[in-house]
């Protein structure tokens, strides 16, 4: 944790000046390896990822249902009795149809949703999508943020002014509103860029949207760091020696920025999982019949009073995953960049 860092430790930036960029990286990795909390979190994450990847196995051999197919008139055997998955109410006027609740057995372990699908199996499939989107969106975000931040900070001048103002506009646009406006449009029509067409149901859309909206949060610190680096002695010295600008960019600036980016990865992942679930909850993220943790919560909303497990289970999955990512993020930050006060929102 932060308090473990002794102030005398060399900041990452100084390490590169000696011309051995791998050394501080390795040192940080070693430090991370001995961070118990971070390692526990990392193992939990690995376990979650593996479990989610096994979703098809679970659906085929354990629950024995197709989690993407409605089974409104199916019946299953419980305690030797044939029970309908969707049970019409028999009391009074007989209003409403209630899906089967958690059986805690192999079939319908967490119950069924409004389409009679196995929630446990969908939870695993949903986890795959949630993790995939969060991970890919993180990469998209870091790529664009680096591109904009480095370009803006390194070249300065008119480029900087234009890009900074663009970031300002994005920044002032409340994140969720931006995401919602983009989603509503893109999900209605898909996206066509030149010869490529992304269909409206594609996962690439949430990935792109979530990736783009957080660009200012990363691009700004990156730009600040690049500007600081440009003024640092070793870069000034390189310029003085007449080393070409592209070499300075690739060999002096970028390696230093990478440290910042590594620190951002787990934190952005955590943030993206929450954002993805929020968008899906507002039904503008992952589109049916695909699932993500957010869509399962959303679909379970209509069952909250009778079958709360449908909404509660994916929420718990989100909390555990995000918690693990945050703990890992703390560890990574302490290891790589102990002085930073990065706080992505």
């Amino acid at each position: 944790m932060t308090d473990a860092t002794s102030p005398s430790e060399t900041p990452a930036a100084a390490g590169t000046a000696t011309g051995r960029p791998q050394s501080p990286f390795r040192r940080a990795m070693v430090k991370l390896w001995y961070d118990r909390a971070a390692m526990i979190a990392a193992s939990v994450l690995v376990a979650i990822v593996i479990t989610c990847l096994l979703a098809p196995v679970y659906a085929k051999y354990v629950s024995g249902t197709d989690p993407f197919r409605s089974s409104l008139s199916a019946k299953i055997m419980i305690d030797g009795k044939r029970v309908p998955v969707m049970a019409p109410s028999t009391e009074g006027l007989g209003l409403g149809v209630t899906p089967i609740g958690p059986t805690f057995g192999a079939k319908y372990m967490l119950g069924a949703d409004t389409q009679g699908r196995d929630v446990a199996a969908r939870l695993l499939y949903g986890g795959r999508n949630s993790l995939l989107i969060a991970g890919a969106a993180t990469l998209v975000c870091l790529f664009f943020a680096t591109l904009i931040g480095v370009t803006s900070g390194f070249f300065g001048g008119a480029t900087d002014v234009v890009l900074s103002r663009f970031l300002d506009v994005l920044w002032a646009f409340p994140v969720y509103l931006l995401a919602i406006s983009l989603s509503i449009i893109l999900i209605a029509q898909g996206l066509t860029i030149g010869p490529f067409t992304i269909e409206s149901g594609s996962l690439l859309l949430p990935i792109g949207i979530i990736g783009v909206i957080y660009v200012p949060y990363v691009a700004r610190p990156v730009r600040g760091q690049v500007i600081a680096l440009k003024r640092s002695e070793f870069v000034l010295a390189s310029i003085g020696l007449g080393i070409p600008r592209w070499r300075i960019l690739f060999f002096d600036i970028l390696p230093n920025v990478t440290t910042t980016l590594i620190v951002f990865v787990p934190l952005m992942m955590a943030l993206n999982i929450v954002t993805e679930s929020a968008l899906s909850f507002l039904s503008i993220g992952v589109q049916p019949p695909d699932a993500s943790w957010g869509t399962i919560i959303q679909e379970g909303q209509g069952l909250l009073y009778n079958r709360p497990m449908v909404s509660v289970a994916p929420g718990i999955a989100i909390v555990i995953t995000v918690l693990a990512l945050n703990i890992l993020g703390d560890g990574v930050r302490d290891a790589f960049d102990p002085r930073s006060k990065l706080r992505p929102r």
């Binding site: 109410s89 009391e91 009074g92 006027l93 209003l95 409403g96 209509g302 069952l303 909250l304 009778n306």
Partner: peptide, 19 residues
């Protein structure tokens, strides 16, 4: 009425429900 309230309305409040 939302779907998850229907069973309740149909049983506890059936005298107040008109279909």
């Amino acid at each position: 009425p939302p779907a998850d309230r229907l069973p309740e309305l149909g049983s506890k409040f059936q005298n107040q429900v008109h279909i």
